[in-house]
């Protein structure tokens, strides 16, 4: 019988702890498939961040290093400089990458580090219980914006992919979503491109994923996925922001 579906080798055989309807599981799987596709499992070092994705090491069958909150890009820089032939990726949420770790991600990108960054944007601090993230939309209620995010108090939702694309040091930058099968296939393609940038030693790859957080959004899984499509995508446009064969 022909096998049409199986667990990627780079994914450990354990159930995810993620909440029902959370997109982390799908994104984890896409990353693992990509590692398999390029045959990188035995020379991959993943850098886990702090947030809902902190347990990355429980799910990936690769070497993993835990980074302090926000510092994954700096940690990955150290790993890559010491192991230039290995494949290094970070997996970071919006609090980690776009708030406390802004300096590290900007400068790693600007140096054109040969690393691949998976950025998961669900517009909220998930692990700590639903506080405002830098990516929280205007008017969005969180546990620290009980009246909705007010730009006069907290500024505006930050568009990281666009910022990364501005930096000369980046090679591939895209924003994706996994809310529909079509978007998922596009996301898979973007991830492959970001992997290629590193595998071919061309430069820094960055893929932002819009992701649902039904628990903290106080929605059902279906509502949360529809929220990505209807509310997040209009503010955070999907697409490839930069595709540079030889950035630096």
């Amino acid at each position: 019988m022909k096998q049409v579906f199986k667990r990627p080798k780079s994914l450990a055989d354990v159930p995810f702890h993620f909440c029902p309807g959370c997109h982390h599981g799908i994104i984890h799987r896409l990353v693992a498939e990509c590692i398999d596709r390029f045959g990188l499992r035995e020379r991959t070092i993943g850098v886990a961040s702090v947030g809902c994705s902190v347990f990355l090491y429980d799910y990936f069958a690769v070497d993993v290093l835990e980074a302090p909150h926000g510092r994954a890009a700096a940690v990955a820089t150290g790993v890559k400089r010491a192991r230039p032939d290995d494949f290094i990726f970070t997996y970071q949420g919006d609090g980690d990458l776009a708030a406390i770790g802004t300096a590290e991600i900007i400068h790693a990108a600007n140096r054109g580090e040969r690393i691949t960054v998976v950025f998961v944007n669900n517009a909220v601090f998930g692990m700590t219980g639903g506080q405002m993230a830098p990516t929280t939309l205007l008017g969005q209620q969180t546990t620290t914006t009980p009246f909705g995010r007010d730009e006069s108090l907290s500024g505006y939702p930050i568009r990281m992919a666009e910022i990364m694309a501005q930096l000369t040091g980046t090679c591939y930058v895209a924003r994706c979503a996994v809310d529909t099968p079509k978007n998922l296939m596009r996301a898979k393609k973007s991830l492959q491109k970001a992997f290629e940038a590193q595998v071919e030693n061309r430069g820094f790859g960055f893929v932002e994923f819009l992701s649902a957080c039904p628990t903290n959004w106080k929605m059902t899984p279906q509502q949360a996925t529809a929220h990505v499509t209807e509310v997040m995508v209009p503010y955070y446009p999907l697409g490839v922001f930069k595709e540079d064969e030889n950035p630096n």
Binding site: I45, V47, L65, A67, P68, R71, A74, V75, A76, T77, G78, V79, K80, R81, A82, R83, A103, E104, I106, H107
Partner: peptide, 23 residues
């Protein structure tokens, strides 16, 4: 490799990354 980092925070975390590989 010598690398001038963007901050002291980045420096120590780069060290953490490099040293984790055994270097």
């Amino acid at each position: 490799t010598f690398l001038q980092a963007e901050s002291e925070i980045a420096s120590i975390n780069m060290l953490l990354g490099a040293a984790a590989t055994g270097a």
